[in-house]
Amino acid sequence: MPISPSLAQLPVRRLTSDDLLACADLSENRGWPREEHKWGLLLTAGTGYGIDDPSGAGLLACSVVTSYGPGLAAIGMVLVAERYARQGVGRRLMEHVVTEAGDTPLTLHATPNGQPLYEQLGFTETSRAEMVRGRFTFSTPAPAVPVRPATAEDLQTILRLDHEVFGLDRTHMITRLPAFADHLRVAVEDGEVTGFAAAWPNMDTHVVGPLIARDPATAQALIASLAAAGDRPLRTDVDVRHTALLGWLKENGVDSVASNAVMVRSLPDLPGDWRRRFAPLTVAAG
């Protein structure tokens, strides 16, 4: 719907790490988890945009853009306070973000509620991601692929593998994993790193991501190792084309919660190799 003149005049500003609590408050306002740990990563590694609530009570809208250079930027955490919902604020914020991006291709994960707006702004669905969550039961064993904790010496190898599979350089995100994640694992076969995965804390769960692996067997071994290292339920977002991995996760008590559209703008598809890209670091950052 058209935005009211009073809301249209409110400026969109860049957010900083000082806005972390206001972003978490807005998440909570819309029934999402506060996710302060994730917000901290996104606001330091990416660029946040927000509209201040004229009442002085924090933010009325926000979003975060994570750039991977001129080849791609990911949009996430698009939120509008409940009292301002369905008044055109989300469109206004998204139009600002798209304009700021210029010629840079964009990607995002869209909920069913948000997808129509994104389609109107030129985004098209290229795949889907299934969010799964649950306490890992170890009912169906993982294949016997060697997995061990990553060390500092593995970082350059991880970065090279990630660049190859993701298709773009995300050094600014991957190098934050040792501090951001509780556990970081690598799969090694015949002296070669064939995959890596992290588990990072998010409220009462461990989110598995990124998950990069040579094949489904390697992905399963990485997840099983991460599950054994912690005592929280697992959560991850798996490309629905990875049916074998999704089936195995469900056999182990990690069940479907939601399905979202993976969308792109000014790009036919995401770069890289989806066959080895099983889950994002977070859907908010691609």
Rank of each mutant, 00 (worst) to 15 (best):
A22Q: 02
G102M: 11
R148C: 11
G31L: 11
G102S: 03
E100D: 15
H96N: 09
G88E: 07
G247D: 11
M131G: 13
S225F: 06
R14N: 13
A213Y: 01
I174T: 13
N113H: 13
H96A: 11
L43Q: 03
E125A: 15
I223Y: 00
T175N: 07
E100R: 10
D169P: 12
A85G: 15
A221K: 01
E35W: 04
Q87V: 06
D269E: 11
L246I: 15
L26Q: 04
A179L: 14
E95G: 09
G102H: 00
P210N: 03
E125T: 15
D237R: 09
A213H: 01
R275P: 06
E164F: 11
V186T: 06
G46C: 10
D215Y: 05
S259K: 10
H183W: 12
T99W: 10
G286N: 10
W200F: 07
W200M: 04
P11L: 13
E130D: 06
A150V: 09
Y84S: 15
R241L: 12
T151Y: 04
P149V: 08
L184G: 00
E125K: 12
G90Y: 06
L108V: 05
R241P: 04
E95M: 14
L59V: 08
V254W: 09
P70R: 01
M173W: 05
E95Q: 15
G76W: 04
L159S: 09
A150Y: 01
L7I: 14
T16S: 10
A219D: 05
S55M: 11
L121Y: 00
A217Y: 04
N252E: 11
W200T: 10
A228K: 14
M77S: 12
T236W: 03
Y84A: 14
F196C: 00
S139F: 07
R214K: 14
V65E: 03
A179W: 11
A61L: 10
T47M: 08
L121Q: 00
G122S: 08
L234E: 01
A81S: 14
T194H: 02
P11D: 02
A229C: 09
A110T: 01
D237P: 03
T194R: 02
G69M: 13
L226I: 07
S27A: 12
D52C: 10
